[in-house]
Amino acid sequence: MSEDQANQMTEARSAELQQQWHGWGSPVGIGVGLFCLGAGAGAVLIGIAAIASMGAMFT
C-alpha cells in the first residue's frame, strides 16, 4: 500500500468518526437536550406554582 492510499484511508476514517461524533449524540448535543428538558420542567413548575398561588388569593 502506498503512502497516498494510507493517507486517504486515514482521512476517510477521520471523516467517518467526525460524522458519528457530531450531532445530537455528541456530549454537546446531549447537554443541550438535557438543558432544554430541565428548562421545560422548570417552566412547568413555575406555571403550576403561579396557578396555585392565584387560586389561594381567591379563597
Rank of each mutant, 00 (worst) to 15 (best):
M1Q: 12
S2R: 01
S2Q: 00
S2M: 02
E3Q: 14
E3I: 13
E3M: 12
D4T: 09
D4S: 05
D4A: 11
Q5K: 10
Q5M: 09
Q5N: 07
A6I: 14
A6R: 15
A6W: 15
A6Y: 15
A6E: 15
A6D: 13
A6L: 15
N7F: 11
N7A: 14
N7M: 13
N7R: 15
N7I: 11
M9D: 10
M9A: 14
T10Q: 14
T10E: 15
E11T: 05
E11G: 03
A12R: 10
R13D: 10
R13S: 12
R13L: 11
S14Q: 10
S14N: 08
S14I: 08
S14M: 10
E16A: 13
E16D: 11
L17W: 03
L17A: 11
L17G: 01
Q18L: 07
Q18P: 00
Q18I: 06
Q18S: 06
Q19I: 04
Q19C: 02
Q19S: 09
Q19W: 00
Q20A: 06
Q20W: 05
Q20C: 01
W21I: 13
W21P: 04
W21K: 12
H22Q: 10
H22F: 09
H22W: 07
H22N: 06
G23W: 03
G23T: 06
W24T: 08
W24E: 11
W24K: 10
W24I: 08
W24H: 07
G25V: 07
S26I: 02
S26M: 00
S26Q: 04
P27Y: 03
P27E: 07
P27H: 05
P27K: 06
P27Q: 06
V28A: 13
V28H: 07
V28W: 05
V28D: 09
G29V: 00
I30C: 02
G31P: 05
G31W: 14
G31D: 11
V32C: 05
V32P: 01
L34Q: 00
L34S: 02
L34D: 00
L34A: 01
L34I: 00
F35G: 01
F35A: 06
C36F: 08
C36K: 09
C36R: 09
C36W: 08
L37S: 12
L37T: 14
L37H: 06
G38M: 14
A39R: 13
G40R: 00
G40L: 04
G40Q: 01
A41L: 14
A41W: 07
A41M: 10
G42L: 07
G42N: 01
G42T: 03
A43S: 13
A43L: 15
V44Q: 02
V44M: 06
L45W: 12
L45R: 06
L45M: 14
I46P: 02
G47W: 04
G47Q: 07
I48C: 09
I48T: 13
I48K: 12
I48D: 07
I48W: 10
A49Q: 11
A49C: 08
A49S: 10
A50H: 01
A50G: 03
A50R: 04
A52H: 01
A52M: 08
S53Q: 15
M54W: 03
G55H: 00
A56E: 11
A56F: 07
A56T: 09
M57T: 14
M57W: 12
M57A: 15
T59N: 09
